[in-house]
Design a protein around this nucleic acid. Structure first.
Length: 487
RNA sequence: GGCCCGUUCGUCUAGAGGCCCAGGACGCAGCCCUCUCAAGGCUGAGAUCAGCGGUUCGAAUCCGCUACGGGCUACCA
């Protein structure tokens, strides 16, 4: 039997980290088993639709490197793959259940239902539907259904136990009396999630049902629907939730949760996939840097964690750094490109690359690292120019010496620049660190981490000299009058 | 309130009765390297395995209870 798994998001917002994690687990499993991956859009709640959500989904997953075989745009043998376009199927299924005596029309108003719930809650009773319409004669109900607004509910058995053998959580049981007569078809003719998911999974030949942990409590409802249809239930696995720092299910209020945000912040899809895969799954070895292909090969359902895992930005940042360092030069350049202003000289960026690559955790940080090479707009603060344990006058003198020494350096290259500055430090009796500090702040506008000598070479003689002169002015003027440079 | 799930360093986790007075990684601290910052290397702090009772010669690993946390409880998914 060939594996067919699906991921079935609701288009209610932009692609979310939590659902991505579930999606990649589906992906790993499908590809590992040379199976078929299906994308199905579950848009049965017309009130919650968000424009552009499907687009965001496609864009986000494409970026992450997740591909699938059947879906709304890809088509496939079970098209359409959007639930709102499959309404007749669900309506027929609901009618089927009614005909079998496993479902019934319910004419209760939302007001009655709300009042019922309120009353039950006030009496500290279990809030559940009181089966008011269950006793209406089928013929009479069918007749009323022609004119009256109604829903279809599932006839849940009175007692017994229903259980699932979850691939992650093991056996989970529910007393049937805790389950109410679920609405399966809404008054607008749309199915509820519960009906739609069962009908579609069956119709589309889904062999394994994988979804987030938050669905575990509604599994008995689905089991009962399978039972009512007389269908066999495929193996089911729930994956633990991704949690925010407070231990609650990751949500918008936890900060960045959309993949497009991480993309814009300069994260690599490789790092996202790698990091996300390791929340809730571990290979049982001490390895932890994995490509998508590695993960497809190594992932195992029985190694999936039961407990939810907290989102840890620091760890993601580390993985991102790892993946940036792993990229080949041309690849890294390509990734960096969209983050660099168009007017910045790509040639210079290419030359700066070896200096940057071990110093950025995100592509955005990479951009900030080389900003000084492309703009003179940044300002220097006089106090920042003065090394620790030195005073302003000394800094001014050192700057003057360095300027003089640098002026004559030819060729203006890293080794020669270093030699010149080392000579200055000897003459001054300063540590090279202190000389570097002054020159660094003067030319790079701050304690930028790139190596100074290489950076000056990239900057070139002219701009280096101009910036040194400018810094000298700042040091010389100062609010306290300062000491004039003596050179 | 009801139903269900979970609980190993701050975080992600290894661990499926003796190899564990618990290993790795992130983060943190220190040292080395070093023009700064990173990267890299080394070292260190950090978990009485939620608690309590059992089973066993022996328990993080098996059982029970309790506590705490979480999810669900809609004509939302």
């Amino acid at each position: 039997m060939t594996v067919r798994v699906r991921f079935a998001p609701s288009p209610t917002g932009s692609l979310h980290i939590g659902s991505v994690r579930t999606t990649i687990y589906n992906y790993f499993f499908a590809r590992q088993h040379k199976g078929t991956l299906i994308l199905r859009i579950e848009d049965t709640d017309q009130d919650r639709l968000v424009a552009g959500a499907v687009e965001s989904l496609y864009e986000g997953l494409r970026w992450m490197g997740v591909t699938w075989d059947e879906g709304p745009r890809e088509g496939g043998p079970h098209a359409p793959y959007i639930q709102s376009e499959r309404l007749p199927l669900y309506q027929r299924a609901a009618q089927d259940l009614i005909d079998k005596g496993a479902g019934y029309f319910c004419f209760c108003s939302k007001e009655r239902l709300a009042a019922l719930r309120a009353q039950q809650a006030a009496n500290r009773q279990i809030t559940r539907y009181d089966r008011h319409c269950r006793s209406i004669e089928p013929k009479e109900a069918a007749e009323r259904a022609k004119t009256e607004p109604h829903v279809v509910r599932l006839k849940v058995p009175d007692d017994g136990v229903i259980a699932v053998d979850d691939l992650v959580y093991g056996r989970v049981e529910w007393p049937i009396e805790t389950i109410e007569d679920q609405v399966i078809l809404k008054s607008d003719g749309f199915p509820t999630y519960h009906l739609a998911v069962v009908v579609d999974d069956h119709a589309m030949g889904i062999t394994h049902i994988f979804r987030g942990e938050d669905w575990l409590p509604s599994t008995p409802k689905h089991l009962l629907i399978y039972q009512a249809f007389g269908w066999t239930v495929p193996p089911i696995a729930h994956f633990p939730n991704v949690l925010g720092q407070d231990g609650k299910k990751l949500a918008k209020r936890h900060g960045a949760t959309k993949v497009e945000q991480f993309r814009a912040d300069g994260y690599l899809p490789e790092a996202m996939v790698n990091y996300l895969a390791l929340i809730g799954w571990a290979p049982g070895t001490e390895e932890e840097v994995f490509t998508m292909d590695d993960l497809v090969q190594r992932f195992r359902i029985d190694q999936v964690q039961k407990a939810g895992g907290k989102w840890d930005r620091d760890r993601l940042d580390w993985f991102n750094g790892v993946w940036i360092r792993r990229l080949a030069d041309p690849d890294l350049i390509g990734r960096l490109d969209p983050f660099m202003p168009a007017e910045w000289d790509r040639d210079v960026i290419r030359k700066a690359l070896p200096l940057m690559r071990e110093r950025m955790r995100t592509l955005v940080e990479g951009r900030e690292l080389v900003r000084f090479l492309f703009t003179d707009e940044l300002t220097v603060d006089a106090a920042a120019l003065v090394p620790k344990k030195q005073d302003r006058g000394a800094a001014a003198r050192a700057l003057a010496r360095a300027t003089a020494a640098l002026r004559d350096v030819t060729p203006f290259e890293e080794a020669e620049i270093e030699a010149a500055l080392r000579r200055v430090s000897e003459e001054l009796g300063w540590h090279i660190r202190e000389v570097s500090h002054v020159v660094r702040v003067a030319t790079m506008f701050g304690p930028i981490g790139l190596p100074l000598f290489d950076s000056l070479e990239l900057l070139g003689t002219e701009r280096t000299m101009a910036r040194l002169a400018h810094a000298a002015d700042i040091l010389g003027e100062g609010p306290r009058g300062g000491t004039r440079a003596d050179a």
